[in-house]
């Protein structure tokens, strides 16, 4: 099974639009929305959810007030400033390491498993789809990403589908690394802006760091030709193929508003043709 992760470094460059349209073209893919922080693929693909389960991916220190003697040892050892001066635990700062639990002489503290998200098993028109929602403020988004991928891999094995298409999150940190880990290919969607270009360089370096081959798509390609050329130059130097250019077209936004896929509703439009072209090139890799 081939695994392709669509990422961007910079947010809002069009990852999800690209994934949804590729899903429609691929016909034989399993889909995984690994942007667990802000999942959106379901809004375009409108899958029917058959199962949802709570994911416990972290722990939090919890205190039994009556056993606390206010000795202050927990406060002294916590490296995350998660214990207040009056010995309460700030759940937003607690990283669930367990050091306070270990040091507490009266066993007033314990680590409790924490629900960090929900995983959904769904069926879209184009194939099985696994997605998730990280609980607000929860840690360890990387763990939830890995769990989504594992379920998606199982689904691909069960249904005999040969392609797993992963929608990643912006950034270069833990959820991105978890969504890249061990995949065959990274498809990077960028835009010709100073910010897009700067972020592209960083995400390409991340892909390189983990030895993942990367291909690049320039979305909103004609917004700034000069920067588009600069991106191309950078990609040429690093031997990252630029396999597609999607024009800046109001149709893209319009389709998004009514929940349509460009390759279905406007297959002969410029952006529609551009995405079909990307899929044709992608299938050759």
């Amino acid at each position: 099974m081939q695994q392709i992760t669509v990422i961007s470094g910079k947010g809002g460059t069009g990852k999800t639009t690209v994934v949804a349209n590729l899903a429609a073209l691929a016909e034989q893919a399993v889909l995984a929305d690994c942007d667990v922080d802000a999942p959106n693929l379901h809004l375009l693909l409108k899958p029917r959810t058959s199962r949802e389960r709570v994911f416990k991916g972290g722990k939090l220190a919890v205190k039994q007030e009556e056993q606390c003697k206010h000795c202050g040892r927990c406060l002294a050892v916590c490296r995350f400033a998660a214990i207040t001066d009056d010995y309460r635990i700030n759940p937003f700062k607690c990283e669930g390491c367990g050091v306070c639990v270990y040091i507490c002489p009266t066993k007033a503290l314990e680590l409790q498993e924490e629900e960090t998200g929900t995983i959904y098993t769904s069926q879209s028109l184009y194939g099985p789809m696994i997605h998730a929602k990280l609980k607000t403020g929860a840690d360890n988004s990387g763990k939830l990403v890995s769990a989504v991928r594992k379920e998606a891999e199982q689904s691909a094995a069960e249904t005999g589908r040969g392609l797993l298409l992963i929608d990643g999150s912006p950034g270069i940190g833990c959820p991105v690394i978890a969504s890249l880990n061990g995949v065959d290919l990274a498809l990077i969607v960028t835009e010709p802006t100073r910010s897009g270009c700067s972020d592209l360089k960083r995400i390409l370096a991340v892909a390189g760091h983990f030895s993942i081959p990367a291909l690049v798509v320039i979305n909103k390609d004609d917004l700034n030709q000069a920067i588009s050329l600069e991106i191309e130059g950078h990609c040429q130097k690093g031997k990252w193929p630029v396999i597609g250019r999607i024009p800046f077209d109001p149709l893209v936004n319009q389709a998004l508003h009514v929940g349509q896929l460009l390759v279905e509703s406007y297959p002969e439009s410029k952006p529609g043709r551009a995405i079909k072209d990307i899929w044709a090139k992608l299938s050759n890799f």
């Binding site: 947010g11 922080d37 802000a38 937003f92 700062k93 990280l134 607000t136 403020g137 929860a138 840690d139 988004s141 999150s169 912006p170 950034g171 940190g173 959820p175």
Partner: peptide, 14 residues
């Protein structure tokens, strides 16, 4: 801040 609603975004907003 960073986009999202998990730890790096919260660290910025706190």
């Amino acid at each position: 801040a960073q986009p999202g609603s998990s730890c790096p975004t919260i660290a910025a907003a706190l």
